[in-house]
Design a protein around this nucleic acid. Structure first.
Lengths: 110, 110
DNA sequence: ACGGGAGACCTTGACAATCTAGGCATCGAT
DNA sequence: ATCGATGCCTAGATTGTCAAGGTCTCCCGT
């Protein structure tokens, strides 16, 4: 049972960039990887994923190229650009600051 | 310099509830308290705050009552209802799970 | 031979929540 | 007299996610 993904707002981009920082992947695989490595806590809907990828590509933080998936199917592979790496760093720091602040309020003296 | 508040999505309600769990406060004071205790990392825009309070009141997780602020001004004081406490617990847990998942992806091996 | 599920992509429309940018009123200090 | 802080409020635009659909191919079970 995945979490309310409502929180994703503003975080999905960073998650995608981070996923791609480990190497090129196609969209479907990005969603899979995120879901797997968080034990299902992060469920990325395809209706969120593909528009996000398109946004990121348009802003030139990722690049797309058609290729073939591990299972021999047509798939679009995304690669992180230098720009993307910079943005990832920045967004990661933003997240850290935000999460720290919220946790300080919500989970004090745990 | 406050953070991009874009992240707030879905978190603001919990923050407000938590703030009120320490005792009744008026809207302006809620924003102040959140801003202060997070060293400005959480800047709550009034255009987000008041609609949020209205939403929460309508859902009966908080109650409003007009009164007088510490500085002698007319102010609306909000109190957490039992329902609100329950929701706070639930949302806090949701946040914890979400934040843990995102951090695990974004800040691995820190 | 056929059906269904999984892999892989995409789009449309609705919705929810935040932000921007205003407005109003009172008070104290300069 | 004006300005900043206190305190409330609203309208509209923006944004991003979600739900729900659709397409095509491959593989597996029956």
């Amino acid at each position: 049972m995945p979490d309310k993904t409502e929180h994703l707002h503003g975080t999905l981009d960073a998650l995608i960039l981070k996923t791609l920082s480990r190497g090129p992947l196609h969209g479907y695989a990005i969603a899979r990887w995120l879901e797997d490595t968080t034990d299902g806590a992060l469920a990325i809907e395809e209706g969120s994923l593909y528009p996000a990828l398109y946004r990121l590509e348009k802003r030139r933080v990722i690049e797309a190229e058609w290729g073939t998936s591990e299972l021999g199917r047509r798939a679009k592979f995304y690669t992180l650009t230098p720009r993307g790496r910079a943005e990832l760093r920045q967004r990661t720091e933003e997240w850290a600051r935000f999460a720290t602040a919220v946790s300080r309020v919500l989970l004090p003296a745990t």
